[in-house]
């Protein structure tokens, strides 16, 4: 019968929040209130990341099935440049590290300048990554590596630039968060915003590791 189980009784809100606190939310005890009110948002963002991961996973799978479809056009060995891919990897890894520093600065309530400093460094590294990636694409285009050339290149250009697009989005979000920080100070939405952006940033780092190993290293080996 109806499982619509209703008995209006008071309950203890704090006790309940203790019980359901999500382990992924790592702001530390100093920010207990933010954790209680915002942990749903962070959990939701994790779920969104799962969904996004499916998209990348499918594009990876598609890329692998299209490896043979070069149609006589240039392949990985003609197009990829290990040096530049390595620089991009290092930039992105470094940016993940600096974002980690920013998270620590937030967690232990160090002064806001330090938080902003690390965030800005992260942003600069992200932009530098994008710059190198675009430069890479430009070189590829010059060498005949355009997506309309073959199924293989189409698969490449549907996977790698999507990651770049994500990084662009993350950078815009970072700028927006810095703006919010300037206007409202370090309030709860800004804190959880930084937390969610951190998840996205590290996620993009992991996806790039996948791209680097599978597309670049795999292609050149």
């Amino acid at each position: 019968m109806s499982q619509n189980n209703v008995i209006p009784i008071e309950h203890n809100a704090t006790q309940d929040a203790q019980k359901t606190r999500h382990p992924g939310l790592n702001l530390g005890p100093a920010h207990a209130h933010e954790e209680d009110t915002r942990e749903e948002m962070v959990f939701g963002f994790w779920v969104f990341m799962m969904s996004d991961l499916i998209i990348f996973g499918l594009l990876f799978a598609t890329y692998v099935t299209m490896l043979g479809g070069t149609a006589g056009g240039p392949g990985p060995s003609e197009l990829f440049e290990m040096k530049s891919a390595f620089i991009e990897t290092m930039l992105l890894l470094a940016s993940s590290f600096t974002f980690g520093m920013a998270s620590l600065a937030l967690k232990y309530r160090e002064d806001r300048t330090r938080l902003v400093f690390w965030l800005v460094v992260t942003l600069l590294l992200g932009v530098a990554f994008l710059f190198f990636e675009l430069k890479d694409f430009h070189t590829m285009f010059d060498n005949g590596g355009v997506p309309s050339r073959s199924g293989y290149l189409s698969a490449f250009f549907s996977l790698v630039p999507l990651h770049g697009l994500h990084v662009t989005g993350a950078c815009i979000w970072l700028v927006a968060l810095l703006g919010q920080l300037a206007v409202y100070g370090l309030d709860a939405p800004v804190k959880t915003g930084i937390l969610r952006l951190a998840i996205l940033w590290h996620f993009l780092d992991i996806v790039w590791i996948g791209i680097f190993s599978l597309v670049y290293l795999g292609g050149l080996s």
Binding site: S2, Q3, N5, V6, I7, P8, I9
Partner: peptide, 20 residues
């Protein structure tokens, strides 16, 4: 205002007891 749910069909049980 939110109800406390202690079993399946909690509301039905309450009503049976006349405590809905």
């Amino acid at each position: 205002m939110l109800p406390e749910i202690y079993s399946i069909d909690a509301f039905m049980t309450e009503k049976d007891r006349g405590q809905g």
